[in-house]
């Protein structure tokens, strides 16, 4: 390990950044929903899983990836919006809605997983790389697929940032997350904002699933580990903060990539979870946020 050339370390860090950009997409989706609705969406991993399957079937029908990825995002937007409208929308009005939403999305997660198991079967499906080839920068070798993942993640997150900061819908969303009653008084259609937010979050998860599908195989159970990673990311960044989730995602990606060099891969998740519990214990508002 000590004799490892510096280029290998840089390669690991870059790989960590690529993985981290995907965690940021997943975590960003969780943060968006929690920030706007205070709902911890346990079914978020299944949006990621659906994104994987959608990519598998679209690319399998020789739809070019340039077209397939936006299609996946659009499809998942509709799924997410429908899920919100049919379940969470009603739950938000209940007494004890906090627990009701967690329990209901947990139930949805199990239902979606097993629906996928019945519809798509239990075999692991593989998706071909969207781009072949390797990028060489000096001693550093990087498959173009990973470069593409990074570009898509950055592009998606920039678009989300633009949407949140510069558009009327973004203002409405941020107003709703600050105080939904006040936003409603100002004429913001809070229910519709909630629905669109859920759709956007599902689209983010779906894009991550579609981009990671060539790296990991697609299966009904692929969502759960990613959901847990997403939780670690949002807790590190401060639950409900979209920029926090991005920073948290990149941080987790790099820490994991370097950690695997030091310890074995099977303990990687244990360290991630332990780190998260320590952060919750010491700084429940996240690593970068301010104490309330």
């Amino acid at each position: 390990m000590t004799a490892m050339p510096i280029a290998l370390y840089i390669e690991q860090i870059v790989n960590g950044l690529v993985a981290g950009s995907m965690y940021a997409l997943v975590g960003g989706g969780i943060a968006l929903i929690y920030g706007t609705m205070r709902v911890l969406n346990m079914a978020h991993g299944e949006f990621y899983m659906m994104g994987g399957y959608a990519a598998f079937y679209l690319v399998g029908r020789s739809v070019p990836p340039v077209l397939a990825i936006p299609l996946v995002a659009g499809l998942l937007f509709l799924v997410g919006a429908a899920v919100q409208r049919l379940t969470v929308h009603y739950l938000l009005r209940q007494d004890g809605w906090l627990f009701a939403c967690i329990a209901a999305t947990l139930g949805l997660s199990i239902a979606f997983q097993n629906l996928a198991l019945i519809v798509f079967g239990e075999d692991y499906k593989t998706v071909p790389y969207y781009v072949e080839g390797i990028l060489r920068l000096g001693d550093i070798r990087l498959p173009l697929q990973r470069v593409l993942m990074l570009l898509v993640a950055v592009g998606t997150l920039l678009a989300m940032g633009f949407l949140l900061k510069k558009t009327r819908f973004g203002w409405a969303l941020r107003a709703t997350s600050q105080d939904s009653d006040a936003a409603s008084v100002c004429g913001i259609p809070v229910s519709r904002v909630h629905m669109i937010t859920f759709g956007l979050s599902a689209a983010l998860g779906g894009v991550a699933g579609a981009m990671l599908a060539p790296i990991y195989s697609v299966s009904p159970w692929m969502g759960l580990p990613v959901l847990f990673k997403g939780f670690v990311v949002v807790v590190l960044g401060g639950l409900g903060s979209f920029p926090g989730a991005i920073v948290g995602g990149l941080l987790l990606g790099i820490v994991e990539a370097l950690g695997v060099q030091i310890t074995s891969a099977e303990w990687r998740d244990v360290f991630g979870f332990a780190l998260m519990i320590v952060v919750v214990w010491a700084r429940p508002w996240g690593l970068f946020g301010k104490a309330p």
């Binding site: 967690i102 847990f228 939780f231 807790v235 639950l239 303990w267 244990v270 519990i277």
Partner: peptide, 29 residues
């Protein structure tokens, strides 16, 4: 102990889930 400090239900849910996952991963590793 860590749960005591947290008022937010989402944090409690995430921490307890992660704890169970640590126990499961440890038992299978």
């Amino acid at each position: 102990l860590p749960i005591l400090r947290i008022k937010s239900m989402a944090h409690v849910a995430v921490v307890t889930l992660a704890f169970a996952e640590i126990v499961r991963l440890s038992c299978s590793n």
